[in-house]
Nucleic acid binder design. Structure first.
Lengths: 229, 229
DNA sequence: GCATTTATTAATGCATACGTAAATTCATGC
DNA sequence: GCATGAATTTACGTATGCATTAATAAATGC
């Protein structure tokens, strides 16, 4: 599951870009554990390339806040503490609410909102089937579609960065949480507000939705003593 | 003028980091013009290092949105269109208002707010002396101090990135704008709201302040036909 | 004279080599 | 047995070299 739009055009990826994606996936999959150190040379060998592309990938990942280059200690996968997660949720909330207001303000027609509608449907089906994995995927899709409708590429880029970290935490906490019934109701309300062009409501409902998500996540991290995800 | 906190500790900067700072400054100073292309080898020669640190610096600058690496065309300094600037201001507005609310909510004592007070004073002196350069510097200081009081390191990092771009545009437009008298009044109101712990007011006042700044900047860019700053 | 193909150039992406400085091990003195 | 200092290892930062391939120029055919 990649956060960037998967362009179907088959452009030849450079080794650096592949290393970037590979390392990112390894971090999300937990193959590179939070807090762990890894030598550039080891990673290079694992990926079957020289140190150069690994280093370049590491520099990019560093500016995305996923790891840290520490001279002579290797790259350190940054753990995300509950306090970090609170920060991340706060930023996400602002950016998504900005998007929700912009979307409501633009007077989108129904087809434009299809991605939102589809994601909502999928979430409802998933909840009915008790399928949390598919729910999480559709939930992610909803939030990203919302941000795209906000039509602010910089907000979208920052959203992707932050959302990556949430995804990482969610893979750990997904099965600890109750069924997201209220969440689905929230999404529908946000959708209706945007469709109706009700800017204030879109912001308010989505803000409350995100606040709940934040509290839920922090509760889970606290309850299960997950201090560095 | 660096956006990162200037740590007084004299740590030996690597060539890559120096190249990063040097290139960034060259972009802000206009030595590397928006839209211009530059070969890695040229830049390397200018900076007196090999291509490697230049490349690493370019990668970092790319993820900050200041330039773009285009195979065989060199690095391209990204121009910032008025539409881009609108996006940037919208993101900045959200992050700063988040900070203003958080700051108001924390119940800071007077000494904590000193950086804000000092910046406001300096701005008033600068305006009285018709010194726009010093005003801009103090204004920047105010906004950054505000974000720091918001106590969200991720928001601060993103703020720095976006604010860099505004600074670049402001060096061009600074002397086209009227004296920022209203702006100073706004700052004082934000300060008072934070001191009083009035979250709603801090958000509302600062939001309006930022909206004005955005409109002013966009007007200037439009009026002077500056389509790629 | 124009289009198409071939040859040349040149800049990148990447591997590799190497000096340097940190970290570790070992040795030595007390 | 411990601390201090010397020797060694090691990982990084950076320079360099080279193969690849896009871009440009040249050449050929019609």
């Amino acid at each position: 599951m990649s956060s960037k739009a998967d362009t179907p055009s088959t452009k030849p990826l450079s080794n650096s870009q592949r290393a970037f994606l590979a390392l990112r996936d390894m971090i999300f999959a937990g193959d590179l554990a939070p807090g762990s150190d890894h030598l550039e040379s080891e990673l290079a060998e694992q990926l079957g390339v020289s140190r150069t592309p690994v280093r370049e990938a590491a520099l990019m990942l560093e500016s995305q806040g996923l790891l840290e280059l520490r001279p002579r200690k290797g790259v350190r996968i940054l753990p995300v503490s509950p306090e970090d997660m609170a920060e991340i949720y706060d930023v996400l909330t602002e950016l998504e609410c900005l998007a929700a207001r912009n979307a409501a303000n633009k007077g989108y027609s129904e087809p434009d909102l299809d991605p939102l509608a589809k994601a909502i449907e999928d979430m409802e089906v998933a909840v009915a089937q008790n399928d949390l994995e598919n729910w999480a995927e559709a939930d992610d899709r909803f939030h990203r579609a919302l941000v795209l409708l906000g039509d602010n590429s910089r907000a979208a880029t920052v959203f992707d960065m932050m959302n990556d970290q949430v995804r990482r935490a969610r893979t750990v906490t997904l099965f600890m949480r109750p069924l997201p019934v209220q969440s689905n109701e929230d999404h529908r309300q946000v959708f209706e507000a945007i469709k109706a062009g009700d800017i204030g409501s879109a912001d308010a409902v989505h803000r409350a939705h995100r606040q709940n998500a934040k509290n839920m996540m922090l509760e889970l991290l606290k309850k299960h003593r997950l201090r560095g995800v």
